[in-house]
């Protein structure tokens, strides 16, 4: 039975859910040490995302009509959504961070949505990208907090209403907890996107695998329905994770604005 399959067919039947995350160089620039420096498809998708966001925000609002058109109201919905989130988390002083939080939200959202297009590449499934964004957020928090409040900012690490001897234990814990923030912020986004795409790929593979398994092919609609359901779930996750990223950014920025809790 197995001999009747040609080798190419067998290769196609092997599940390879990781393959989709491979970086492909488009424009190599050379090497630094052993590391190849290249313009990859990941960078291409990022530029495309920036282009889409610019199109959405600049072009859609260029007419500035009082009664918004279709595109303009879409841009306004995004803006007001993020402005609301930021205002709830940081109060009045957080308005100056609106450009940062809005850019982060739109960037992550559009990249996640790009990842949902079949055969497209999910940029946010790479830890480097999400950690870069999280590191940006946390350095803004630290730099702005120190600039605005000086050493008072480090009062963030000293919990209030705690007996003095316990502080020796609690302050290091608070410091570690603070350092863990960019890690959890980046890992959450990365893990959700990665796990979702792998799960979709595997269930989609089950359809093909069952179809080629003789009498078992009767069962093949089951994983198909699951794949469809999973795709819907992934759209939800893509939007939700972008929102969570923006919300947590706003919450962390609140610490930089009001560290005296």
């Amino acid at each position: 039975m197995a001999g009747s399959l040609d080798p190419a067919h067998q290769v196609a039947l092997r599940p390879d859910p990781i393959h989709q995350f491979e970086l492909k160089s488009i424009l190599p620039f050379g090497h630094i040490g052993n590391q190849e420096i290249a313009f990859t498809q990941s960078a291409l998708y990022m530029f495309a995302a920036v282009g889409v966001i610019a199109l959405l925000t600049i072009v859609a609002t260029s007419s500035r009509s009082v009664v918004p058109g279709r595109m303009q109201s879409l841009a306004e919905i995004f803006y007001e959504f993020i402005a609301d989130t930021l205002h709830q988390a940081t109060g009045d002083g957080g308005k100056r961070f609106m450009p940062l939080v809005f850019s982060l939200f739109m960037f992550v959202l559009i990249l996640n949505m790009f990842g949902m297009i079949p055969y497209a590449f999910a940029v946010t499934s790479h830890l480097v990208v999400t950690f870069g964004l999280a590191a940006l957020v946390i350095s803004v928090v630290v730099i702005y907090g120190v600039m605005k409040h000086g050493t008072h900012f480090f009062g963030l690490f000293v919990p209030q209403g705690v007996p003095k001897p316990l502080l020796a234990l609690l302050v290091p814990i608070e410091v570690i907890s603070f350092i863990s923030r960019p890690i959890s912020l980046s890992v959450r986004l990365f893990a959700n996107v990665l796990a979702g795409h792998i799960a979709m790929k595997i269930f989609a593979f089950f359809v093909v695998g069952l179809l080629s398994a003789g009498a078992w092919s009767v069962l093949s609609p089951l994983p198909l329905f699951l794949t469809i359901a999973l795709t819907a779930l992934e759209f939800l996750v893509a939007a939700l994770q972008a929102y969570v990223f923006a919300t947590l950014t706003a919450i962390y920025l609140n610490d930089a604005l009001h560290p005296g809790h």
Partner: peptide, 18 residues
């Protein structure tokens, strides 16, 4: 569940790196 487990693991990783 994803959020909470990430929070926990992040704490451990941060402590380990430090």
């Amino acid at each position: 569940a994803m959020t909470l487990s990430t929070e926990f693991v992040a704490g451990v990783i941060a402590g380990g790196i430090l």
